[in-house]
Design a protein around this nucleic acid. Structure first.
Length: 338
DNA sequence: TCTCCTCGAGATCT
DNA sequence: CTCGAGGAGA
C-alpha cells in the first residue's frame, strides 16, 4: 500500500515537471548587490532539492532579522516540496522526505516570508541564489505582480573577497573558519544563517580596522592602459612604413588581437598611438563596435570626429581592421596572431 | 577622470 | 553571480 502511494506520487511528479515554468533570468526584477556594513538586515538561507530554480524546490527556509546588529526575530520552517528529496541532498542536509511530509507547502509559506523580509537589506552567502529561488517561487505560485523581492542585498562572499584576501576558497565554511566562527553544525538553513551573521560581523570588525576600508568597498573599475604609456619594446623600427612617425587611433574592438598589442606594433614600427582624435591624428583604425549600445547611428564618436576633420582638410586616413593588418604584412613586419 | 557598457572566465549556492 | 580586461562617452 505504501509502495503504491510512492509510485503514484512519483508519477505525478514527472507530469508536473513537464509543466514547470521556466523563468528567464534576464526578466527577474531584483535589487542591487551592495558593498556596505549596515546594522539592520535580514539574513536569508534556503535549502533546496538542487541548484536550479527552474526545476528544483525549496525544502527549508530560515530568515533572521537583526536590528542594530542584535537578533530581533527568527522565522524558520521546513517546506513540503511535493517531490522526493534526492539522496545526496538528504546526505548533505539530513532532511528526509519524512521530515517535510507534514510541513506547509511553499505557496502557504511565501506570503509570510514576503512580510517578514519586508524592505530590509538581505544578507547571505551567494544570496542571489536564495533570492532567485524566492523570486521564481513567487511568480510560479502567484503570477506576476503579487509578490516581489527587489530588496538590495549584501553578499558575504563579495565582502570576504575584499577583506579576507588569499583564502584557498570562499565557501561559507572556509570564510567562517578563517575568522574563528564555529563551523561544526548540521548543514541546515538555521545554521547557515547563524554562520553568515557571525562571519559578517567579524568581517565588519576587520574592515573597521582596515585603513583602506572605504577604498575596498568601492566598486572597482579596471585601470586602462593609456595609449601614450606604450613604449617601444623592439628595435624593428621601419622608417619606410606609413605608420612611421604617424599617429594612430583605434576605435572599437579588434577581432584578431587586443588593442594593446596592435598599439604595440604601431609603436614598434616607429609610430605613435593616441586615445583621442586630434589634429595630430594620421590614421583611425576601425574595429567592431556593434555591441556598444551608446552608438546609435553606427559610427563611434572617434569615427565622426575623424570624418569631420577630414572634411576640413586634415590628411587623416580611416582604415578598417583588415587593411591595418595588410599594411603591417605588406611591409614585412613580423607579428603573430595568438 | 569618472561612469557605464560587453564579454569571458571562474566560483559558490544545494 | 562576480570580477577583470577592454572600450565609449561626457
Amino acid at each position: 500500500m505504501m509502495m503504491c502511494l510512492i509510485i503514484i506520487k512519483r508519477k505525478g511528479l514527472y507530469v508536473n515537471m513537464g509543466y514547470r515554468k521556466k523563468i528567464k533570468c534576464e526578466n527577474r526584477k531584483k535589487g542591487k548587490s551592495i558593498l556596505a556594513f549596515p546594522s539592520d538586515y535580514v539574513v536569508l538561507d534556503i535549502k533546496t532539492t538542487g541548484f536550479d530554480p527552474c526545476w528544483d524546490e525549496i525544502i527549508e527556509i530560515c530568515c533572521n532579522r537583526y536590528i542594530n546588529n542584535n537578533l530581533d526575530q527568527i522565522m524558520t520552517t521546513f517546506v513540503n516540496p511535493d517531490k522526493p528529496i534526492p539522496d545526496h541532498i538528504t546526505q548533505l542536509t539530513q532532511i528526509t522526505g519524512q521530515m517535510v511530509m507534514e510541513s506547509p507547502k511553499i505557496k502557504d509559506v511565501l506570503p509570510e516570508i514576503n512580510k517578514f523580509i519586508g524592505d530590509s537589506i538581505v544578507l547571505g552567502q551567494c544570496v542571489y541564489y536564495d533570492i532567485n529561488f524566492l523570486h521564481d517561487a513567487y511568480i510560479y505560485e502567484f503570477g506576476e505582480g503579487i509578490y516581489s523581492i527587489e530588496n538590495d542585498y549584501i553578499d558575504l562572499i563579495r565582502i570576504a573577497h575584499r577583506f579576507l584576501p588569499d583564502l584557498p576558497n570562499y565557501s561559507l565554511a572556509m570564510i567562517a573558519a578563517s575568522i574563528g566562527v564555529n563551523i561544526s553544525g548540521i548543514y541546515r538553513a538555521t545554521f547557515g544563517c547563524d554562520m553568515t551573521h557571525l562571519s559578517y560581523q567579524k568581517c565588519k570588525e576587520i574592515a573597521n580596522n582596515n585603513p583602506n576600508k572605504e577604498e575596498l568597498l568601492k566598486n572597482k573599475y579596471s585601470k586602462k592602459t593609456k595609449a601614450c604609456d606604450i613604449v617601444r619594446n623592439s628595435d624593428q623600427v621601419n622608417e619606410f612604413h606609413p605608420f612611421y612617425d604617424a599617429t594612430c587611433v583605434f576605435t572599437g574592438k579588434l577581432e584578431k588581437m587586443i588593442r594593446k598589442k596592435a598599439m604595440q606594433i604601431v609603436v614598434n614600427i616607429g609610430g605613435y598611438c593616441n586615445d583621442t582624435i586630434t589634429r595630430e591624428t594620421d590614421y583611425l583604425i576601425l574595429g567592431d563596435y556593434d555591441y556598444c549600445k551608446t552608438i546609435i547611428d553606427g559610427k563611434s564618436s572617434k569615427y565622426k570626429k575623424a570624418e569631420d576633420l577630414k572634411i576640413k582638410g586634415q590628411d587623416i586616413e580611416i582604415i578598417s581592421e583588415s587593411v591595418f593588418y595588410d599594411m603591417i604584412h605588406e611591409y614585412q613586419y613580423p607579428f603573430v596572431i595568438d
